[in-house]
Nucleic acid binder design. Structure first.
Length: 487
DNA sequence: GAGTTTGAAACT
DNA sequence: CAGTTTCAAACTC
């Protein structure tokens, strides 16, 4: 069947678990996934990622003065360490040093470290530069060592975390692993609760007492995640809905971006109504217990409701709250939507191939082109999408009017949106995709961007954007409804 | 840049 | 396992 054949590339493109390289190509083929060299899925993936992260990255780039030209030659990934140690036979314990001789330092570590704002996560992108003095960089105090990396361009003293001290290093690693086999495994992991903290949580949890978990002393805060059940912190303010956290975010663009990232992480789990978990420890002053909105309000579309519900909880001890998209967006909807995207792609492929044939036979195809694009921008396409998703089916007529808008502009004109919502809308990036609507150039072709697929990809991405806009609309409307009910 | 605070890691 | 010490990062002045 022609349609299924055309849909195959999109199926492959949407399979983000498969990275496009020579080794995975064979795997993909074995799975029946079609690989098209002239249109690697990485292009689509990177565009989607860029769409979601552009705001974050732009702001980070402007706020960070860290020089980007430092590239350590080779870094050992954290997960590599246990493996390395497993090969060791002896177990020398690294002795504690009294007071090593201090070499002359040439650079101010503070000015540099201040700029090093990369969140500590499982996949560090930028090499930390430590300032260790007494640990020889062979203890977990050393960030480089703890990350499984060799020291490089650091300001450490008497450093043994180097290739030339490999024996010492391995001995120390072995000793540490003997104490704690998980010492080198990433501390940040996917949360079993999902919505609790935006999808990830600190494996061990923090133990903060004075920082309110709102300073970088706190490992959770530093990793840009919310505190979880596992934390033993006191007077924690690092939870969704925390006024202090909110105030902090509003004051600092960097923290705003962190919040956006947290909210985006939470969107996947929170929007489909994953039940929140609760942290309950009687020995601790837990603000989350008095603010039951915290965990439920993880959706980026629910930021305003979160604020509202937060204030409600100050007045009532048992506030009721549900995320705006709870009960609206179900897992099945996401599946349906993916199916829809495949269909859109297939239809586009079909139309485009017909168009190509017509061009070849000298027929003017302007009308066809218009019909293809418009059918996916509104009208039938929208109805199809709306039907398949069943979104906001319980909403009043106003919603239908809003849904009929294809670009979501009316939503934005209605009132200012939160940075979190704007981050998801990513409309400022529209030009990136819309620019591909211009006739493909020979450059694109020579770069391996088959114009046929560029156009096909554009249509799919536009549908995706349209879907996100509708989702936002649903969230806004539900939010308004909840707000009215609260009044 | 020096000094202080903080919380994880290491040690007892 | 709890308490203490050490350590280096984060923070303040």
């Amino acid at each position: 069947m022609e349609q299924s054949e055309a849909a195959a590339p999109v199926v492959r493109q949407l399979d983000f678990s498969v990275s496009y390289n020579a080794s995975t190509k064979a795997n993909a083929l074995a799975k029946g996934i079609l690989i098209l060299p002239e249109h690697p899925q990485a292009q689509l993936q990177s565009k989607l990622l860029a769409l979601a992260q552009s705001q974050h990255l732009h702001a980070r780039a402007s706020s960070s003065s860290q020089p980007q030209n430092k590239r350590p030659p080779r870094k050992v990934p954290p997960q590599e360490l246990p493996h390395m140690v497993g090969l060791l036979k002896s177990k020398p314990i690294a002795p504690r040093l009294a007071h090593p001789v201090k070499p002359v330092k040439t650079e101010s570590p503070k000015s540099r470290e201040r700029c090093n704002i990369e969140p500590k996560d499982s996949t560090p992108k930028k090499q930390k530069q430590c300032n260790c003095k007494n640990s020889r960089c062979l203890k977990l105090y050393c960030e480089c060592f703890a990350a499984g990396s060799y020291c490089d361009n650091c300001n450490c003293i008497n450093c043994h975390n180097k290739i030339e001290h490999e024996a010492d290093r391995k001995g120390s690693i072995d000793a540490i692993l003997e104490r704690n086999p998980n010492a080198f495994t990433p501390k940040i992991a996917n949360s079993p609760h999902g919505a609790t903290d935006g999808g990830v949580e600190h494996k061990k949890g923090c133990n903060c007492k004075k920082s309110g978990c709102l300073k970088r002393y706190c490992e959770c805060f530093q990793a840009n995640i919310l505190c979880s059940d596992k934390c033993k912190c006191m007077d924690c303010k690092n939870f969704e809905g925390s006024e202090e956290k909110k105030a902090l975010s509003q004051g600092h663009p960097e923290h705003q971006l962190m919040s956006i990232q947290q909210a985006a992480n939470a969107a996947i789990n929170g929007a489909i109504g994953t039940p929140p978990s609760r942290k309950s420890r009687n020995h601790q002053i837990d603000f989350r217990e008095t603010c039951s909105t915290s965990y439920a309000s993880c959706s980026p579309l629910s930021v305003h409701v979160s604020k509202l519900a937060s204030s409600m909880t100050l007045e009532s001890s048992k506030p009721s709250y549900r995320a705006p998209l709870a009960g609206i967006l179900q897992l099945q909807h996401v599946k349906d939507f993916c199916r829809l995207l495949v269909e859109v792609s297939a239809e586009a492929a079909k139309s485009l191939s017909e168009e190509k044939k017509m061009i070849n036979s000298g027929i003017d195809v302007n009308v066809t082109e218009t019909s293809v694009a418009s059918s996916h921008e509104d009208g039938k396409g929208d109805q199809n999408e709306h039907d398949s998703l069943g979104l906001c089916g319980n909403q009043e007529n106003g919603l239908q009017i809003l849904l009929s808008e294809s670009d979501g502009s009316c939503i934005r004109n209605r009132r200012p949106l939160s940075p979190e919502t704007l981050a998801l809308m990513c409309d400022e990036e529209d030009t990136v995709f819309l620019s591909t609507s211009t006739p493909p150039t020979t450059t694109q072709s020579t770069l391996g961007l088959n114009p046929f697929y560029v156009e096909q990809e554009r249509l799919v991405l536009m549908r995706f954007r349209s879907f996100l806009n509708r989702l936002i609309t649903c969230g806004c409307i539900e939010e308004t409804k909840i707000g009215r009910e609260a009044d």
